[in-house]
Design a protein around this nucleic acid. Structure first.
Length: 473
DNA sequence: GCATGATCATGC
DNA sequence: GCATGATCATGC
């Protein structure tokens, strides 16, 4: 049973909108403001809580503090909703704001997975469905250099999963359940799914023994996991529904019955397939794309996909944004070899040397991004034709070993001042480092406080070829 | 012929 | 004014 800590409560907990009205008063406040105003705690207790949250070694969710010191309740049964009368679940989550765009910082954890009990529940019978149908989201601004208790809460709103997201959440859910049924709970990864995933839980805050559990169809121990909304999905909720930015969003699949019969990927590919062998340069003319721009075929792919699905060229494709599916283009020569390597955003020398692989931008890119590769090929008459489209994720084994090693070698050389001699295409099977700047004088600061041309990671041509031949997923 | 270094047009 | 998604230009 939920225990209430003050009487009467300063808000009406039976109605979602009245809870929201009270929650909105948190806007502009810090966690310190909330803690200091708590009438139930002694100064000693407050100090203990401050120390716990400010400790940079641990990531404690602020959910507990907001629950007890602002909403004045304490739960002792996790399976019940946070506000049981109103059927509302409270989530407190950080976001980044770097002037250009606002992004969610972390996944939002919905409910723990009990491998031994949940595998025979349908999505509709699951806790995600009954407990998380209405979320009260409180987003606070994360700043690296700031004490955690001084973070400010800025965006507060109720959120309900849109109907069109349900089928995709459900298909993600089923992918996870199927994996448990195959005895592969220990192999779950964020690579598997689009909006939802089974993330590891309590890795740093609890004892080792509680982070490992059993699974029903294998003797292999598995890590404790929870159903979570992936970071790109959180970013999309923030931008689309809470901040209400000026963009217009369109779904590729408007008819929900289609998603019950097929997946997003199958549907998209079945439509694009009808356009294989169209001529890329003719399409440039058709869409008025400047043939001198270097990203002309990428620009073409973006306009042309929107045209096929009846979406305006400046509008956002909802499913692609929520699952962070990025369109990338590859040109193959007449012998099926890629004409160019594939680039990614430039890295900062001073940042990359401080990041562990698992926390690096490169890892984040591959863990949270999926690719829709648009492949063009030069035919025997040197005309560039649309060859095929494929959805692609980097194979997890490539990340775990060769790419990790490659990145560590890069970091080692930057640290020792060899930032102008980084791994080349001829040195590594998968990736290399090359300049990515608008002039060679466009530089970043190096660890020895000099500067060097901005560079980025590139996929080798041979690796792209290999992955295209494998056919994607 | 290809790997490597240099740079372009665009959009926010 | 710079990040982006690439292609172009060169030198071995």
């Amino acid at each position: 049973m939920t225990k209430y800590l003050v009487n009467p409560l300063p808000y009406d907990n039976s109605n979602p909108n009245l809870i929201l009205d009270y929650a909105k008063k948190l806007k502009g406040k810090t966690f310190e403001d909330i803690l200091s105003a708590d009438p139930n705690l002694t100064e000693d207790e407050k100090d203990r809580i401050r120390t716990k949250y400010n400790n940079p070694k641990y990531k404690w969710s602020f959910w507990n503090l907001i629950e007890e010191s602002y909403f004045f309740y304490k739960k002792n049964n996790d399976s019940e909703a946070d506000f049981p009368e109103a059927w509302v679940e409270l989530k407190v989550s950080p976001y980044f704001d770097n002037e250009w765009k606002i992004r969610g910082k972390e996944r939002i954890s919905l409910t723990m997975i009990n491998f031994n009990a949940d595998y025979n529940k349908t999505f509709e019978e699951s806790h995600i469905y009954d407990k998380c149908s209405l979320l009260l989201l409180i987003f606070y601004l994360y700043k690296k250099e700031q004490k955690k208790m001084d973070y400010i809460m800025n965006y507060i709103d109720l959120f309900q999963f849109p109907e069109e997201d349900f089928e995709i959440l459900k298909s993600d859910y089923n992918i996870i359940i199927e994996k448990i049924k195959r005895g592969e709970a220990h192999l779950l990864s964020e690579w598997d799914t689009k909006y939802l995933w089974a993330c590891r839980k309590w890795q740093k805050t609890k004892k080792w023994t509680t982070t490992i559990t059993t699974q029903p169809f294998s003797n292999e121990p598995a890590k404790t996991r929870a159903f979570c909304l992936k970071v790109p999905y959180v970013t999309s909720i923030l931008n689309r529904y809470i901040i209400n930015n000026k963009h217009t969003y369109w779904n590729i699949i408007k008819d929900l019955d289609i998603l019950k019969k097929t997946t997003l990927e199958e549907y998209v590919l079945s439509k694009l397939k009808l356009h294989y062998w169209e001529d890329a340069d003719e399409l440039l003319l058709k869409y008025w794309i400047n043939p001198k721009r270097k990203d002309r075929y990428a620009a073409l792919a973006n306009i042309w996909i929107r045209d096929i699905f009846n979406i305006n060229k400046e509008d956002i494709i909802d499913e692609f944004e929520k699952a962070n599916i990025e369109v990338k283009t590859v040109r193959l020569d007449s012998k099926w070899k890629p004409c160019e390597a594939m680039s990614f955003p430039a890295f900062k020398y001073l940042e990359i040397i401080d990041q562990k692989f698992e926390e690096s931008d490169l890892y984040d890119l591959f863990a949270n991004q999926k690719f829709l590769l648009i492949v063009y090929k030069y035919d025997d008459t040197k005309n560039l034709k649309f060859e095929k489209a494929m959805f692609w994720n980097i194979p997890i084994l490539d990340i775990e070993w060769p790419i990790k090693d490659f990145r560590e070698e890069t970091v080692k050389r930057i640290k020792s001042g060899k930032y102008n001699n980084l791994p080349k295409e001829s040195e590594n099977m998968i990736m290399h480092v090359r300049p990515h700047a608008w002039k060679s004088s466009d530089t970043f600061t190096t660890p020895d406080w000099k500067s060097a041309t901005k560079k980025c990671f590139w996929f080798n041509k041979s690796y792209i070829q290999e992955q295209i031949e494998k056919g994607g997923n």
